[in-house]
Write a protein that binds this DNA or RNA. Structure first.
Lengths: 113, 113
DNA sequence: TTCTTATATCCTAGAAAGCGGATATAGTCA
DNA sequence: TGACTATATCCGCTTTCTAGGATATAAGAA
């Protein structure tokens, strides 16, 4: 039951939902992308990403100086069940749409491009 | 997005999950049932119940001195989607099973019986 | 009205979580 | 090696959440 609560807890914060919403549309993103799109200080972006990784939502892949985060392919059963629900409900959210728009407009101008 | 986060937040606490798990099996329960089964002080039980009511999960019905809580029939879309998932995953939880067992063993010996 | 009971709310303390600047780490390049 | 960069972690501060005893409210009974 604690595990279930922890999974829901990982979704109870707007910043983390925004990160997941982005990664539901983009294969993978590096920390600097997240910082730029969500306009977060580096430590804040990194902290949320590592939280989502610890809970099991995200995996990371280091390429040189950059670290790319993506959604884990084989999620835990509850998370696997929740994923399409997140996709559906976050897709309707104006905040998530705005973030995606901002991501597109940045194009390849970011640090890791 | 804030609304979505709030719904997940209402599920990020073990006590609230235990209450929902009970109400997924029992049509309705009064506060004293919850107190007895979860072994919570009265103010704690009442606080969590009113939290779940404010978020939209529960409705209450007063009968004399007692207040019976039950799961809302027409939930908000996200909650409606999450409900069967909760049913499924909470059903497998030993904690929830233990609570149900305790509820059965109390039978009609409670305050509101 | 007064007493009793079930529930809700108040209040303060403590725990947990988030924030973001500062610092550490890891990798690149010269 | 040393300078530089992207990311992670540390640390102090603030905010948010919870617990549970104390008090208030609401309803029934005498």
């Amino acid at each position: 039951m604690k595990d279930i609560a922890k999974i829901f807890q990982s979704l109870d914060e707007e910043t983390r939902l925004r990160i997941l919403a982005l990664l539901l549309h983009e294969q993978e993103l590096c920390v600097c992308d997240i910082m730029a799109v969500l306009q977060l200080p580096q430590s804040t972006a990194s902290r949320h990403l590592s939280h989502l990784k610890n809970i099991g939502w995200l995996q990371d892949r280091r390429v040189g100086l950059w670290v790319y985060y993506s959604i884990v392919k084989q999620l835990d059963p509850l998370q696997q069940t929740l994923l399409p629900i997140l996709r559906h409900f976050l897709h309707d959210s104006p905040d998530a749409r705005a973030d995606l728009e901002r991501l597109r407009s940045f194009g390849t101008k970011n640090c890791c491009a």
